[in-house]
C-alpha cells in the first residue's frame, strides 16, 4: 500500500505553476516526449512487438545484444528492421551480464552495431534467481563506461547510498528496481524510491517490477522521471491494450505529481458545506 509522498520532496508544490505543461523527459541532454520506456522482449512475434510499442507511445526502446545463430536464415526479419530508427531511440542493454567486463564489452559491440550511439542501459546481475543487481560490479562498469564516453542509464538497487555513488560517477540516469525483474509485484518500497528521487540531480526511473497500470501511476506520483517496463506489457493477455493503459497511467501519474496530491488524514472532511442545510 502506498503511503503518500515524503514531506521532504525536492519539488515544492507551491513552486510549480498551477497548470505547468510537461516539457518531457531529458536524459543526457536529449528530450523525449514520452516518460514511458519499453522493452522489446517476450513478444510472440515482431508484429506484436511493433504494435505494442506503437501503442505505448514510447520513444526509447530497449534491446538485447546477442550472438548471431550461425546457420540460421540470415535474411529473416530482424528486430532493428521492425523499429524505424527515425522514430525510436534504441537503448541497448547488458541483460545477462554478471560482471563489469562482460557488460562493457557488450555495450562496445552495441555502439558499433548502432553506429556510434552513446545512450545505453547498464545492468549487471548478481543472482540468477532474483536477478538482483550486483552493485559493486555495476559501479565498476559504470565508471568504465562513463570514461569511455557512454551516456549510462543504470539498473540499480533502491539503496540511496549506492545511487549517490552512481550519480557521482557521472551516469545519465538512475533506474532502481521497484520489485524483482519480471515479477509484477509493483512498487514495494516507495520510501527508498522517494529518498533517491529527493537527493538526485539526474533523472530517476523505475526499472523493473511494474505489473499493471496503477504501479506505473504510483511510480510517477512519487516523482519518478519515467518508468521502464517490458514484461507487464508483453506478458499481458492483450499486450497492445496494456501498452495503451501504461501510456495513460504514466501520463496520469505525472499529472497527479505536478498537480500535488492532498495530504492523507485520518479524519473525514466533508466535501459539501455545512451551511444552508435544511435540518
Amino acid at each position: 500500500m502506498w503511503c503518500g509522498r515524503l514531506a521532504v520532496g525536492k519539488v515544492k508544490m507551491s513552486d510549480l505553476p498551477a497548470l505547468s505543461t510537461d516539457a518531457g523527459l531529458t536524459i543526457a541532454g536529449e528530450t523525449y516526449g514520452s516518460r514511458l520506456l519499453v522493452g522489446s522482449g517476450k513478444y510472440t512475434d515482431l508484429d506484436e512487438m511493433r504494435a505494442a510499442t506503437e501503442a505505448s507511445g514510447a520513444d526509447i526502446i530497449t534491446v538485447a545484444i546477442r550472438r548471431v545463430n550461425i546457420g540460421q536464415d540470415p535474411h529473416a526479419p530482424s528486430l532493428l528492421d521492425a523499429l524505424p530508427p527515425l522514430r525510436y531511440t534504441i537503448l541497448p542493454n547488458t541483460a545477462g551480464c554478471y560482471n563489469a567486463e562482460d557488460a562493457v564489452y557488450t555495450l562496445q559491440l552495441a555502439r558499433e552495431l548502432l553506429h556510434g550511439h552513446k545512450l545505453v542501459k547498464l545492468e549487471v546481475l548478481g543472482d540468477e534467481k532474483s536477478l538482483f543487481p550486483n552493485m559493486p560490479e555495476t559501479l565498476k562498469a559504470a565508471a568504465m563506461l562513463v570514461k569511455d564516453g557512454f551516456d549510462v542509464m543504470v539498473y540499480c538497487s533502491d539503496d540511496p547510498v549506492q545511487a549517490r555513488m552512481l550519480e557521482d560517477l557521472g551516469v545519465a540516469a538512475l533506474m532502481p528496481l521497484a520489485s524483482l525483474i519480471g515479477s509484477g509485484m509493483g512498487i514495494l518500497n516507495p520510501w527508498n524510491l522517494s529518498l533517491i528521487i529527493e537527493q538526485s540531480n539526474i533523472p530517476v526511473l523505475v526499472d523493473a517490477g511494474v505489473g499493471t497500470a496503477s504501479d506505473a501511476a504510483i511510480a510517477m506520483e512519487l516523482g519518478c522521471a519515467g518508468v521502464l517496463m517490458n514484461t507487464a506489457i508483453a506478458g499481458a493477455r492483450d499486450p497492445v491494450r496494456m501498452a495503451r493503459a501504461m501510456k495513460l497511467a504514466v501520463a496520469a501519474g505525472r499529472e497527479a505529481f505536478l498537480a500535488g496530491r492532498i495530504a492523507k488524514r485520518f479524519a473525514a472532511s466533508p466535501s459539501s458545506p455545512m451551511a444552508g442545510r435544511m435540518t
Binding site: 522493452g39 530497449t62 538485447a64 545484444i65 546477442r66 530482424s78 528486430l79 541483460a95 552495431l113 548502432l114
Partner: peptide, 9 residues
Amino acid sequence: DVVRAIGGG
C-alpha cells in the same frame, strides 16, 4: 564474436 540486436527489456 558476431552479434545483433534482439528483443530484450
